[in-house]
């Protein structure tokens, strides 16, 4: 068996064993998998395609609201649930809970993906900083609008359906969500790993390096840009739906369209790990999460000062991230130089 397969299997085994090895950290590690999903999907635009987005958090919030709204709405009147104290009037049976959850999760993926497809043509026609600022505007507007919609609790937010009482304890609840998060993370990773080997991956890189050239070579770049955004929106939407269920409470700007937290995190994680690589965003997310959990308590009250400083430091001194640094250090490990002939060629070039 080759090294890579062993590595993958070991990681898989670790992922499966976590709830038994570190029962106290189940929730923490579930959130870490969500962060990996956010980081990986941000990198589809920000890293692979060179379109730095602040807007992917919009799909997160959308997924969160949609998932819970479906979970509640298919069994009970949503407006009464979100009216103050209303959620106490209705109780999901276990069957209802799981049916609702799976339907909700599916729509939490599909609807943001559709939204991305619809607005993609307009938004992805912008480039560079115009795109970045436009997506920032979209994400903030989405949060502000959600905070004004009565049906989903307006600024008060809404609760997602609580775990049904008569089936197991909170341990079971967190194990259930843990595995769903883990499966989501694995699916996202494997999907992207495959997608980057297809035409999709190369075209995204071509767009990043020179979009005009790609068009001049006959590539319909818009089609690929939208496809990429749809993919990101799909996985981010599901992640949002899951997150809403895990927290149990949806607040428009703090948890759903959480630009100040998850929205920034996804950018920092991907850059920290190494933009435009498959493993970079994964490593970045894990490193960031550990940093954050380790220091968040330490910096109590100073979290955002620490986060702001971290962003500045990473962006200025470490823009290529961990993977970029490794690539600088061990270029041959990244297939840049393989045989002697090529090594000579490179020397000649310099």
């Amino acid at each position: 068996m080759n090294q890579k397969a062993i590595l993958y299997l070991a990681l898989l085994a670790f992922g499966i064993a976590v709830p038994f090895m570190f029962p106290a950290y189940k929730l923490q590690i579930s959130i870490m998998w969500i962060l990996v999903v956010l980081s990986l999907t941000w990198d589809v635009q920000g890293g692979q395609m060179g379109y730095n987005t602040f807007g992917n958090i919009m799909f997160f919030g959308l997924g969160m609201y949609i998932c819970s709204s479906f979970q509640i709405g298919i069994f009970f009147p949503l407006a009464e649930w979100t009216a103050s104290g209303g959620e106490k009037t209705f109780i999901h049976t276990p069957t209802q809970f799981f049916q609702g959850f799976f339907i909700g999760i599916i729509f939490a993926g599909i609807i943001p993906a559709l939204v991305a497809a619809i607005i993609g043509y307009g938004i992805l026609g912008l480039r560079g900083h115009y795109f970045a600022i436009c997506t920032l505007g979209l994400a903030i507007a989405a949060g502000e609008l959600a905070g004004g919609i009565e049906l989903v609790g307006a600024g008060q937010g809404m609760t997602s359906p609580p775990w049904p009482k008569n089936i197991g304890d909170t341990e079971l609840r967190s194990e259930f969500f843990y595995y769903i998060c883990f499966v989501l993370m694995i699916s996202t990773f494997l999907f992207l790993r495959w997608a980057y080997t297809t035409r999709f991956g190369l075209v995204l890189n071509a767009i990043r390096d020179n979009e005009d050239k790609a068009e001049a070579m006959g590539i319909n770049t818009m089609r690929y840009k939208i496809s990429g955004w749809v993919v990101s929106a799909f996985f981010v939407g599901i992640a949002g739906g899951l997150m809403g269920n895990m927290i149990g409470y949806i607040e428009p700007v703090e948890t759903a369209f959480a630009g100040r937290t998850f929205g920034v995190f996804m950018v920092v994680m991907a850059i920290l790990g190494g933009k435009g690589t498959l493993w970079g965003p994964v490593i970045g997310a894990i490193a960031f999460h550990i940093f954050k959990e380790g220091f968040w308590t330490f910096f109590l009250g100073w979290q955002y000062v620490a986060l702001g400083a971290l962003i500045v430091i990473v962006v200025i001194f470490f823009p290529e991230g961990i993977m970029g640094w490794l690539r600088e250090k061990y270029p041959d490990r990244f297939g840049e130089v393989i045989d002697e002939e090529d090594r000579k060629a490179q020397v000649e070039l310099k």
Binding site: G301, Y304, L307, G308
Partner: peptide, 21 residues
């Protein structure tokens, strides 16, 4: 340009909390 956007974004988050203090 995105580097300046992100770096000043970091400054903005940091300043917000300092002002909060």
């Amino acid at each position: 340009l995105f580097i300046s956007i992100l770096a000043t974004f970091g400054i903005s988050i940091l300043t917000q909390q300092l002002m909060n203090f």
